[in-house]
């Protein structure tokens, strides 16, 4: 069906904030080296799903979850070493969130936390090249990351995620605050990155999902309505709700 092996699969995954169930009995697979786009209107559970994968929802004490989410056949819901899990699943947030330190320090932040002390220059160069930012910043690595434009900051955040050598990249509406040119650059980076990484892209922009993802999942009110190859989803969706959403009738 899809080239690549199953990287992530969920079995009856449920999630709640207090008594409000935000993900309802989710069953799906994510394959390695694919870009899976997740689309759906606000409050459909897309971001919650993404943040469940690297357990960032744990920061909210109201959050509860059950079921199974397997990463390489290991259940992450019962994972003990959460820092190791987060290192494998790196998230890129909706707004570019550089730390108020230099470009260089932003990128080596993760590696430093994992005890890497040598070869930092190389990590910085490789990460920035992979996120298509190297040429723009190579002469000012010691400048504050806050001096960069929004699009550059977001690519810096991608580089920062790459620097911890993750296996899965979680993009949470990464282009929602960017202009079309910056968006194109980030999308280019994604297309290149899927050769090495598994990518899950949550997006409010249906067209973006159509442009970059190999498969698309449509979430609605915490339920997975439909998941299929991008081409099929956009030409011949099985569910009427998918069709309505894609053609812009709601959402």
């Amino acid at each position: 069906m899809v080239a690549g092996t199953v990287k992530i699969q969920t079995h009856n995954f449920n999630a709640w904030f207090d008594k409000n169930q935000v993900i309802k009995s989710l069953n799906m697979q994510v394959y390695s080296n694919e870009i899976l786009g997740i689309i759906g209107p606000a409050n459909s559970g897309k971001t919650t799903f993404l943040k469940s994968l690297n357990r960032l929802n744990d920061l909210d004490i109201k959050f509860k979850m059950d079921g199974e989410v397997l990463l390489d056949n290991k259940n992450i819901i019962t994972a003990i070493d959460i820092t190791a899990l987060r290192k494998k699943m790196s998230i890129i947030f909706a707004l570019p969130l550089p730390l108020p330190i230099s470009i260089f320090e932003n990128i080596v932040y993760g590696p430093r936390m994992h005890g890497i002390k040598t070869g930092l220059e190389e990590i910085v160069e490789n990460s920035l090249k992979a996120s298509y930012l190297w040429d723009e910043v190579k002469d000012r690595l010691n400048e504050s990351a806050l001096n960069l434009s929004g699009g550059q900051q977001q690519r810096l955040c991608i580089a920062r995620s790459l620097a911890v050598e993750p296996e899965v990249l979680l993009f949470d509406e990464p282009c929602s605050g960017l202009d079309p040119i910056s968006t194109a650059k980030v999308e280019d980076a994604m297309m290149e990155l899927k050769k090495k990484y598994t990518i899950i892209l949550v997006t409010n922009n249906v067209k973006q999902a159509a442009r970059v993802s190999g498969r698309v999942a449509f979430f609605l009110m915490g339920e997975l309505v439909e998941i299929d190859f991008t081409e099929k989803m956009f030409t011949n969706p099985q569910d009427k709700r998918t069709n309505d959403y894609i053609s812009g009738r709601f959402g």
């Binding site: 960032l56 820092t83 998230i91 947030f93 969130l97 936390m113």
Partner: peptide, 13 residues
């Protein structure tokens, strides 16, 4: 709060 989220998301304790 975002500084904390970023740091934790990179696998820092």
């Amino acid at each position: 709060q975002s500084f904390r989220e970023v740091s934790l998301s990179l696998g820092a304790t």
